[in-house]
Amino acid sequence: MKARLKFSKTGTMRFIGHLDLMRYFQKAFRRADIAISYSQGYSPHQLMSFASPLGIGLSSDAEYMDLVLEDTEQVSDFITRINVVMNDEITVTDFILLREEARSSMSVLAGCDYCIAVKPGKDSFLCEPARRKEMLEQFLGRESVLVLKKTKRSERMEDIRENIYCLTDSPEAFAAFTGRDCRTLSLEKGGYLPVLYCQLTAGSIVNIKPEQVLKALCEQEKETYDPFAYQIHRMEMYADIHAKKGEIHTLASEIPCSLAALSEFERIDSFQ
């Protein structure tokens, strides 16, 4: 039985890396006595995969993990059973059964929403609303936004302008764009000052990091980029509902109308 989990990762759990998070869930499932199917072969492992690894330091209200359950008896009370054995800074918020033909969240991932906030005790040029308005207007009016892309072999400039589907400092405007409520951020509690909201291309073909957008903004404003000043918080992940196998839309002109949150994509609403 294919299933998908949505969970949050906040607070001190920001310092747990991706591989450790995988081991964490493997043990949590065992503690909860939830039987996950194992792969075949000499070193069997639990069949689970994440939509997109979250970097150390980032927080999130919308991480996704796909898994295969041994049997359907695991389904009832899943969220309660798993949360009881977990740390309170990693919390499963949704459990979705998927159609048998559903593709992995990793392969259908097309976009992510992020909130960028200034950390308590830090200062940033983004804190002034008037200046923020002005720089965003200029930024969004640009034909191209070139960023340096480093790979193992080469360094080249890449234009990410068309991969920024939305960038605003207004939660209302962002909510109107995405059709989602963005005020329930778990980071709002800790004295963080949200300054930017953005929706960016994500996935295996093109993956834009919010840090790249921040750096580009700094460059435009001739400010130095202080990576410690910002808390980046993932708010949602989306699949491209029109995507065929291997082709995911990555440009602003094609995308916004065809995104569905991973929790709503290829799900089975009722289970017999």
Binding site: T10, G11, T12, F15, I16, G17, D20, I56, G57, E89, K119, G190, P227, F228
Partner: peptide, 22 residues
């Protein structure tokens, strides 16, 4: 969030910050 003795800045500058968060 649970209280931490080390700031985010330090935890993000060192190897394996999870060693120190309990």
């Amino acid at each position: 969030m649970r209280k931490l003795a080390l700031s985010d800045d330090i935890l993000l500058s060192i190897e394996k910050p999870a060693r120190y968060i309990g």
